[in-house]
Simulated assay, not measured.
Amino acid sequence: MPALDLHSMLLQASELAATKNASLDAACRRVADAERALAAARTEQEVLAGSARSVNELVVALQQQIQRSPGTNSQTQASLAEEPGGGDPPSARAAVRRAVRELLLERKEATTKEITQHIQRVLPNVNTKNTSPELTRLVQQGLLVRPRAGVYRLGGEWAVAERR
């Protein structure tokens, strides 16, 4: 092959290599930008989760204070009972009930272990050793159903409210 042809091929290959390297560099920059954005989003998520937990704890504390306040009328009491069939004093039990309902609104069903792990994540200050008895109580109240041993899904008023 003549040297002129080889020189022309070298020039074309060099141009192609430069184009491919520039494309690779651009892709690497986009990956780095995406990783920074993901890290920022995860940090924001952690901050918001902590903030949500704090606000939920504040709501429970205020509800408890209202319950203990003299002159709290039945209309106020009714507005505090968020769960169907509610009326239990706002407490860790009510927070657990809300957490269970929220999880099962997101998922069709969950195991006792998954529910316990969810409660540990969203209510880190709540003792989860009573999760099973609370789930049994919710089944007895008809708010949950147990399609299989150790598996729960929404039932009764909770299931009806979810379909709306």
Rank of each mutant, 00 (worst) to 15 (best):
V55N: 07
L154H: 01
Q120W: 04
A159P: 02
A34K: 13
K113W: 07
L123M: 14
A3Y: 10
G155L: 01
Q63C: 09
A3N: 10
I115W: 01
E35R: 12
N125F: 13
V55A: 08
R97K: 04
A26G: 07
Q63N: 09
T76S: 07
P124Q: 07
A95Y: 07
R153V: 00
Y152R: 04
Q65N: 02
A37Y: 02
S14T: 08
E83D: 11
L138T: 01
A99K: 00
N73K: 01
P147I: 14
A159W: 00
L10Y: 05
N125Y: 15
E114L: 04
R98Q: 13
G71M: 09
A32P: 01
P133G: 07
Q12M: 06
L80F: 05
L138E: 14
L80P: 01
S54M: 08
H118M: 03
L4M: 03
A94D: 05
V139L: 10
A27L: 12
A32G: 02
V55E: 03
N73A: 01
W158V: 04
R29G: 01
G87Y: 06
Q77H: 05
R30K: 13
A40K: 15
R68V: 01
S69M: 02
S91A: 14
V47P: 05
T111M: 09
L6Q: 04
L105T: 15
C28I: 07
L16F: 11
A159L: 06
E15W: 03
A81Q: 04
M1S: 11
A95D: 02
A13F: 10
V55Y: 08
E35M: 11
G85A: 06
Q45W: 07
N130V: 10
Q117H: 13
H7P: 01
R163M: 08
V31I: 13
Q77E: 02
R148I: 03
T116R: 06
V145A: 09
D88M: 05
R36W: 14
K108H: 15
Q117G: 02
V55L: 10
E109V: 03
P147E: 15
T76D: 03
G155W: 02
T76G: 05
V160L: 04
Q63W: 12
E109P: 03
A18F: 05
S8R: 14
S54Q: 14
W158I: 00
S91M: 06
D5V: 06
P2Y: 02
A81I: 09
A78L: 14
D25P: 00
R148S: 08
A39Q: 13
S54I: 01
Q141L: 04
R42T: 11
E57V: 00
V55M: 08
S132W: 08
L6C: 07
R30C: 01
D33K: 10
N56A: 14
E162W: 00
P2L: 04
R97P: 00
V96S: 05
E44N: 12
R107T: 11
Q140T: 11
